[in-house]
Design a protein around this nucleic acid. Structure first.
Lengths: 226, 226
DNA sequence: GCAAAAGTGTTCCAGATACACCCATGT
DNA sequence: ACATGGGTGTATCTGGAACACTTTTGC
């Protein structure tokens, strides 16, 4: 912040405001999130959450939505998580971060991430590299919120592609909860939610009976179950 | 924001960051909150949530804690609610507000509010005056969070004075839930939480059997019940 | 003695859990 | 024919909901 380029002046000091985003997906039966390498600024060589400054007259929610599109090209479930503003969390200056988390089906990100050579990386939640700033705290916070919401909402459905099998859905629950579930009870419960419906397609992928495909009744809509 | 007094300059524009606080108490069997009159700035003549700018190198959490002490003199349960930053929510400039809510036992605020002549006012949640900015939205958000937390935490205990009767506690639940509860079931449930304990005092206050007084086992500590 | 709030247990119901076998397919 | 994951129903348990009378006090 050099004086020669400083142009926006205020009577009182102002912290910098940015958004940081935890973008979750399920890959290979693991909860996975997107990180970007820090090449400059503080924390060089570490990985960080994607993020950026909130622009003038921009709602932080819109800022997060924009960021999500830039990183993934997709327009998926997004929710504000918490606002972090401890002084010192960014060693350069007082920086307030409105953190968000997003859930994206792994099928929606095939293209991106391979194609653009920006060096982003997907990392399993339980095998993360060293993170910049307080991003480890933010990630932990996001995972807790996600796990809590499994219990009283249909948030897990946001990880599913357009069509999916019940076994795949059960796998997503098991991955997030880190616990096996009973197949019959799971099916009973998830069908009782009335949030998914049968298609008349099935998928055959191996030496066994084909699986019926299901779809969301109301895609993109989160529902509460308690 | 006149140029002559502007001293803090940045290369990019920055929104103003402040905290706003919903301070709840229970008064006369009603959910009640603290408002301050707007005498200047935008929204003159309306009432607003107490709030203030986040200072340089101040954690918004600390900013909220400071504000709470300034307004009530008390150091009680406080939780970050949500961050509101829609452009236009403050007509003067792009203002981002990290909103908090606090719960205070009505007994802790006897002195303040009467004594200081700053004209603050306590208003029943379901009989609020016109509020400035987007504060009605913030208040609604806080009430929803509070009601939700009743179901899976001991948050209601934060409204209780040091010693209280089970009927008083039941009244707090009924006030927030806006529904009568069964006395026997309520007592069974709340005692099963193991968060309160009998004192060997009782309170006599009328032509009826005295009520046993209870206290928190771990004051100030929120516990989860599911 | 009567009005008013405090205190106290049991039955019933619904939702969650535990559990094992047959089905359709590819090789 | 056999290996693999898909698909299905019932019995049990547990936590929540419904429900009425006795106790202690002040007047």
């Amino acid at each position: 912040m050099t004086l020669t380029t400083a142009r926006y002046c205020y009577t009182n000091p102002r912290p910098a405001v940015s958004t940081d985003m935890v973008i979750f997906t399920i890959r290979d039966q693991r909860l996975t999130l997107l990180l970007v390498p820090r090449s400059n600024g503080g924390a060089r060589g570490k990985w960080a959450l994607p993020g950026g400054a909130v622009r003038q007259d921009e709602d932080p929610d819109d800022s997060a939505r924009r960021l999500l599109r830039e990183e993934t090209g997709a327009d998926v479930y997004l929710e504000q998580l918490y606002t972090f503003g401890r002084p010192g969390r960014d060693p350069r200056e007082h920086a307030i971060s409105v953190a968000y988390y997003a859930l994206i089906p792994s099928t929606k990100l095939e293209l991106k991430g391979e194609v653009d050579g920006t060096g982003v990386g997907w990392f399993a939640f339980d095998d993360l590299p060293a993170l910049a700033f307080d991003h480890a705290e933010i990630v932990a916070f996001a995972q807790q919120r996600l796990a809590a919401k499994l219990d009283y909402s249909t948030i897990a459905l946001q990880f599913m592609p357009e069509k999916f099998t019940l076994s795949e859905l059960q796998g997503v629950y098991e991955t997030i909860l880190r616990a096996p579930l009973d197949k019959r009870n799971f099916r009973k419960r998830v069908l009782a939610l009335d949030s998914i419906e049968e298609t008349n397609e099935e998928r055959r992928d191996g030496a066994h009976r084909p699986a019926r495909l299901y779809r969301l009744k109301r895609p993109g809509q989160l529902e509460f179950t308690k």
